[in-house]
């Protein structure tokens, strides 16, 4: 028998018996970031493609909520900080090596962008809206001229934000479960998928919903493919990663992962979306709600399982 114990009585809160430094705040922050990135990506994309008319929800309606999603995300990040009064120190340094740092900066850029975008499209959504202050109108008019450039910037930034939500975790070599380069694309895909789901939920246009159902179907397929690859990667890797993947393959996260993330979060909505494309009648809200819930659960368990996974020595 092998027995490994700490004999000096160490039991540091948040570290022992295993890391528990990130609770609900960080996964929620990642989820909100991914969701906002997804929405803004499609808004930017369809603007660039000049399809604002056909995709009104994607371009004009859905982005209205992104400033709130991002602000809430940032607030959650703030809640996670243990030394809150020093929050501002995040913006005294740019450290490219630190995903936490460039995430903060990406948010610093994309949040005002999303506010601006929302403001610009407010009138499309609420035609009777009146800004009251002419200055605001002037500013919006000014930016209106650069809408295309803004769309490009927004698309690029949203991809970075989406990838960032994965890289934040995968940068941690110390946690074998996160230590995979698939996590960036995977979280991006998942973020886009939740973005698409949000658009479906909000859209009143059947055509728009159908397009996004197709997009979502494709994204889910990519996601499943990436997840399968991630596990295959783990199984073929070092002992610590094999151990880490066991958390999902028989370990304590098995049920929640396979039933709630894979089953209810990916496969079932995919089936429902196929039904929808086949014109089989199901309430169209079910699939996107499942996707959103699945995306949230996925982030929670990745963050928690990752903290449990560790190097063996």
């Amino acid at each position: 028998m092998r027995e490994e114990i700490i004999v000096s009585g160490r039991s540091n809160p948040l570290i022992d018996p295993h890391l528990e430094i990130w609770e609900w705040q960080i996964p929620s922050y990642l989820f909100l970031g991914g969701l906002a990135a997804g929405i803004l990506f499609f808004a930017g994309l369809y603007t660039i493609m000049k399809k604002e008319k056909e995709y009104k929800t994607a371009v004009a309606v859905a982005p209205l909520i992104t400033p709130f999603l991002l602000a809430l995300g940032l607030f959650f990040l703030f809640l996670d900080l243990k030394h809150k009064l020093y929050f501002w120190q995040l913006y005294t340094t740019i450290k490219l090596e630190s995903p936490m740092s460039w995430g903060a900066w990406v948010l610093m850029i994309i949040t005002p962008l999303s506010i601006l975008w929302g403001a610009m499209h407010l009138k499309t959504v609420f035609p009777r809206w009146d800004w009251k202050y002419p200055l605001i109108e002037e500013i919006l008019d000014f930016f209106g001229k650069y809408k295309m450039q803004m769309a490009w910037l927004m698309t690029i930034m949203s991809v970075i934000l989406g990838i960032y939500t994965g890289i934040l975790l995968s940068a941690f070599n110390a946690r074998p479960l996160w230590n995979t380069s698939i996590l960036g694309p995977l979280f991006l895909t998942s973020g886009l998928s939740t973005g698409a789901a949000a658009i479906i939920l909000m859209s009143k246009s059947h055509a728009e919903r159908l397009t996004f159902a197709k997009i979502d179907l494709m994204l889910i397929a990519i996601e499943i493919f990436l997840i399968v690859h991630m596990f295959m990667g783990f199984r073929a890797s070092t002992q610590v990663q094999i151990e880490a993947s066991k958390l999902f393959l028989g370990g304590e996260f098995t049920t929640i992962f396979w039933v709630f993330v894979m089953g209810f979060g990916l496969v079932l909505p995919a089936i429902l979306e196929v039904f929808e494309l086949q014109k089989i009648k199901v309430p169209h809200q079910i699939a996107p709600v499942l996707v959103l819930a699945g995306g949230l659960v996925f982030r929670f368990i990745m963050v928690h399982a990752g903290q449990i996974s560790r190097w063996l020595y």
Binding site: L14, K82, Y86, F172
Partner: peptide, 14 residues
């Protein structure tokens, strides 16, 4: 007085 307590370093330490 520079640390914000984000926990990234804790997570990163094997």
């Amino acid at each position: 007085n520079k640390c914000i307590g984000c926990g990234a370093c804790i997570t990163s330490c094997p």
